[in-house]
Design a protein around this nucleic acid. Sequence first.
DNA 1: ATTTTCAAT
Length: 656
Amino acid sequence: MEDMGGASVQAHQALAADAQPPPGARGLIPDGRHLLDEDTFTENFRSDNRPPRTYLCYEVERPDRGSGVPLDQDKGILRNKSAPGPEVPCHAESRLLEQIQSWDLGPKLHYRVTCFLSWSPCTDCAQDMAQFLKESSHVSLSLFASRLYTRGHYDEGLRTLKRAGASMAIMTSREFEHCWTAFEHHKGNPFQPWPGLAMESGKFSEKLQRIPRLEQPGAGRPCWAGSVGASPEWFRAKAGRRWGLGGGGLGGLRSRGGGGFPKAKPLRRMEPWRHRPRDPMGWISPETFFFHFPSLRYAFGRNSCYLCFQVEREGKGHSSYDWGVFQNKVYFEAPYHAEFCFLSWFCDQDLSPDEHYHVTWFLSWSPCPTCAEEVVRFLREYRNVTLSIFTARLYYFWRPDFQDGLYRLWSAGVHLDVMSFEDYEYCWDTFVDHNGMRFRSRDLLRDNDFLATELESILRTTMNPLQQEIFFYQFGNQPRAPKPYHRRKTYLCYQLKPHDGSVTAKACLQNKKKRHAEIRFIDSIMALKLEKDRRFEITCYVTWSPCPTCAKELVAFARKHSHISLRLFASRLYFHWLQENKQGLKQLHASGIPVAVMSSLEFEDCWREFVDNQGKPFQPWNKLEQYSKNITRRLRKILKQPPQNDLENEFRNLHL
DNA sequence: ATTTTCAAT
Ligand SMILES: [Zn+2]
């Protein structure tokens, strides 16, 4: 800047160094020193553009004329110089500092510099400017940025700059108009705000204000000559609706290498802030968090679901990070669960098969079976995506179909867990508009232990599908348990269908917490709240016939729910020589619950419906039929039935 | 606390 070129010449040099448009062809008006042409202004300052370069328009207010600022430099336009050649790259802000330092300023006088930047300063520039301000008490600096440049530790930079006394704000239409008038070769055309200006500007303002400890008490919005302290056009997003504002990065995950050059479009090509109806929002309010995220067993009134997500993207030699929040919503009158919103947004991103994506969800409700199915399908298709789900509460956790959904997620390799204290803290720090407030768990963890145990037992004992070895061992009808010896426990596989429809629910249950599988089965069916005026049929396959207590419970269940007809097939008879047990079986029969012994037909069906059979056909074990016949003979004796007859064959064929 | 529910699972 030692030459006498002035701002426009420097900018020309910058353009030349860029080797992009030939000097003078675009950008600055050749004979209008301090003016930008209309296209350049629009391209660089419109906040919905994201060009990989920075323009800086500055004005200096001097106490008097001739106080050290060269006449033609009290106002100027600078842009960064990128460095394809040997030159060291230089941000526009550095060039401004160099320029100011080249002036012969009177140390007793006061100078006010106002800058309008197309991108806010990067970390390094902000630090440099802060340093400069500390050394130059006779200069004050006001910055207006069209957009926040959010790479690296930009927030620290801005904080430092602010502490050094600079004032900072996002440009509103007032500032754009001022720039238009002062720096733009507008040929007399009035400034036309573009659609969405106020919103874009407001979003960046919010983001700027959210930088912790940025605002100093009493520090207001900066003024530039002529702004007369008019109230700025703060954009206020609708309550609870904020959109993510890319870049940056959060605790522990922020991208490194701040000050990369040139100021390029942020690495992430995912842009959740583009506002389409299914796009995510940014932060949620503390109220939302404390209402929607506590781990409660009885969660009254939580009629919606929040999904806070982060996406860690790892590619060759680079990685990036994205985050946001989804809420379930109705879109063209159709409801979409939050999970679905995420998936549809994510699949819309510019994904590369060469990169790996690790997705983490923090959910207020765990996924429903439909969403679980959707997720499983998604993971099958996107092999380079892994998913972790931390859920605050379990959605309909007592219902077998919902349990099954969770089990399927888990089987598909999803890391699934109930949110822990640390997860809550992380969510607070990352997704909540906490305004610097420290995390307090308050009631968030109230039923956390219960839910964690519940999930664990769902994943452990909701065995859908059954593993092959377990099926063979547990359902085997050998008189003695084959070696190596394991205890043969009760497994109950049930299949429910409406009389005139196809299967609507099925699951395999074990005893749990001293509740026999049969009782859990009754619980499961009750939880479905089946319509009373419709007829249903349930087939159960059990490894052991019911104990007397369970038999009684089943009888009571059948009496109470006459619209449900129930059939039982047992592989083996449980302590059938005991009078009590015999009695139970008789009672079942007497109350319209037929009990029969599983034959190869039933084993085959059980294999097909409940076992992770990997498409293989059922292979009967040695003497299966013979054992089955022996047990059948025993049962008939108990039930005082005549030997095998056609009636029984019909019964078997009826439901299969 | 046998009832909580991405409001219509
Ligand atoms: Zn769902």
